[in-house]
């Protein structure tokens, strides 16, 4: 009888030690992992302001934001028309052009192919939008995926017009 109680207490002690020890190991490992996450100085680099006064219709510029290229395109009326008249049923990732470009003249997108992260080339491809040379994804004039392996449309970052000539990204 006493021996049984003895064994039980021993088991409890060992279980408690193992458990607390495992908690300690876990708590130690977290800082070692978290240190690789974006640090506070990187996270603080949230916004970039871009002067767009010099961009003519039908041309685009590429700026760097958070280490990624941002396409800013001043679209022609034709491009806007083409983009807004597409039937949503034809799209792999249905999105209205008016949802993607708040001001239809300006298209602001993260210039990173949603397939595997290459930078698509402008005014190329079967839909006269963008074409990714890596694995052949075709985007239309609204940056939507039309053909090829990319799963979704080019991403639209958070941005706003500070005034008529300045876009603030982020």
């Amino acid at each position: 009888m006493t021996k049984k109680i003895h064994t039980k207490r021993r088991d409890f002690l060992f279980t408690a030690t193992y458990t607390i020890g495992a908690v300690g190991v876990g708590a130690t490992i977290w800082p070692l992992i978290d240190q690789m996450n974006p640090d506070s100085s990187v996270k603080a680099l949230a916004t970039t302001e871009v002067d767009v006064s010099n961009i003519e219709p039908g041309t685009s510029i590429t700026v760097l934001w958070r280490g990624k290229p941002i396409f800013i395109r001043r679209r022609t009326q034709e491009e806007i028309k083409e983009a807004s008249e597409v039937d949503l049923k034809d799209l792999k990732h249905p999105e209205k052009d008016s949802d993607r470009a708040k001001n239809p003249e300006w298209l602001v997108m993260v210039g990173v192919c949603t397939h595997l992260g290459c930078v698509p080339l402008g005014e190329k491809g079967e839909y006269k939008g963008w074409f990714c040379p890596c694995h052949g994804s075709h985007y239309d004039t609204s940056g939507r995926i039309r053909k090829g392996p990319a799963p979704i449309n080019l991403e639209i970052p958070k941005y706003e017009f500070v005034d008529n000539n300045t876009i603030k990204i982020g």
Partner: peptide
């Protein structure tokens, strides 16, 4: 606090 608890447990386990 944690280390003192763990040390106590480990010490008792060691004695056992």
């Amino acid at each position: 606090l944690f280390l003192i608890i763990l040390l106590t447990l480990v010490y008792l386990s060691k004695q056992k």
